[in-house]
Simulated assay, not measured.
Amino acid sequence: MSIAADALQPSFVRGLFELRGRGQMFGLADAITTAPKSGFDLDFEDARRLIVVDFRETTHVTAIFGGDACRFASASFASISTVSSEIEDKRAVPWALIKLYYSAFYAGHSILRLLGQSCSYLEPSHVQHLRKLTVALGLEPKFTVDAGLYHFTVNGGQTGFALERATGRVGGAHEAFWKVFGAFIEEMTEQVLLGRLAPGEAREVFLKLDAWRSILQRHGAIASSSWLSAMRNEIQYKLTHKLWPPASLNKHARSALARIVKQWERDPMNLDLSHLSRSDLEQFVLACTFTVTLCRVLLARIAERSSAGPRSFASEPLVLCC
C-alpha cells in the first residue's frame, strides 16, 4: 500500500472505515434539502460570508461525504479506463486527453470529499430552501445567498459544514474548483511533515505532493492552481498542441503519453513528477494521472481496512479498476 495513503489517512472524514453499502448517491449540496427528519441548525457568519449548517450528529455527515466521494470516483475511473488505448490512436488522442482531464477533475472532487471538503453547486432549489429556513428562524444574513459554486468544509465535530462562495480569477467553475483544490493540497502538504510518518517517508510524500502542486501552478497559475483547466481549454477550444487533424504528434510521443496513463492503477509515489524538461503535454498527463491514482489508493486504503469488509462503500468504484 502507498505511503501517500499512510500520510493522508489521518485527515479522512471520521467514520469512513465503518461506512457500508452504496452510501447516499446524491450531491453533497442535496443534504440541505434531504436532511434527516430532525433537520439541521442554520446560521451565518457575516464577517466571512459563511453559511453554517449543523445536523447535530456525525453519521449523516459521514454518509454524505463518503457517498459523494464514491460517486465522483466512479466517474473518474470509468473515464480513464480506456484513455491509454485511445491515446495511441492518432484520430482519438485529443478527446482522450480531454477525458483524462475530466477523470482528474472528478478524482480531485472525490479526494476533497474523502478529506472533509468539497466544491459543490448550490442550485436555485437549495437556495430557496435556505431562504425559507432563514425567514422561519428569523435570521438576517448581511450578505446575499445565491446559486453557484460553494466551498464546503466539515466542522471540527463533524456534525455539519460551512459553505463559502468559491470563485476563480475569471469566474469559471473549473478554475474556482482548482483554486480551492490547490489551497487544499498546500494545506495537506504541510500537514504531512507534522504527521505520524517516519521523517524520511514524510519528506518523500511532501516532495511528491509539492511537485504535483507545482505542475498545477505552471505558466503563471500560481494563485489559481488551474493549469490543467487551462490546458484542457487549449486542447478542446483552441485546438492547439498539434493534436487535431492534421495532427503532428507522432506515434512515439503518443505511446509515451499512453505509458504514463497506464500507471493510474499503480502507486502514485512511483510516478516521476520532477522532470521539468518534460513537454506541457507530458506534464499534463502526469498530473492528471497522479490525481486519479491518488484517489484510487485512498479508496483502496478504506476498502482494505474497513470493518464492513467487501461491503465497504469504497468497494464500488474500485470494481472499475482492472
Rank of each mutant, 00 (worst) to 15 (best):
D267W: 11
R278C: 05
T240M: 08
A211V: 06
P245L: 12
P245E: 14
L281E: 00
D267P: 08
S255G: 12
A162Y: 04
F284W: 03
E187Y: 10
W178A: 00
E204R: 15
K208Y: 03
V285A: 07
F161Q: 00
N270S: 15
A202K: 11
W212F: 15
V170F: 14
I235P: 00
R213P: 00
S277C: 07
H275D: 15
K251Y: 12
S229Y: 10
E164F: 08
K208G: 00
M231E: 02
G160D: 03
L194R: 15
F177S: 01
L193Q: 12
L194M: 14
A173R: 10
N250T: 09
E201I: 07
T189Y: 03
L257M: 14
A256Y: 00
L209Q: 05
L281R: 01
G182N: 03
E282Y: 04
A258W: 05
L207T: 13
R278G: 07
L257D: 00
V170R: 13
A176I: 02
Q236V: 06
E265N: 15
E190R: 14
Q263R: 15
V170S: 12
A166P: 02
G220D: 10
E190N: 11
A183F: 09
V180M: 03
M188A: 07
S279N: 08
S255N: 14
K242P: 00
S277R: 12
R254L: 11
F181Q: 00
N250L: 09
S255F: 11
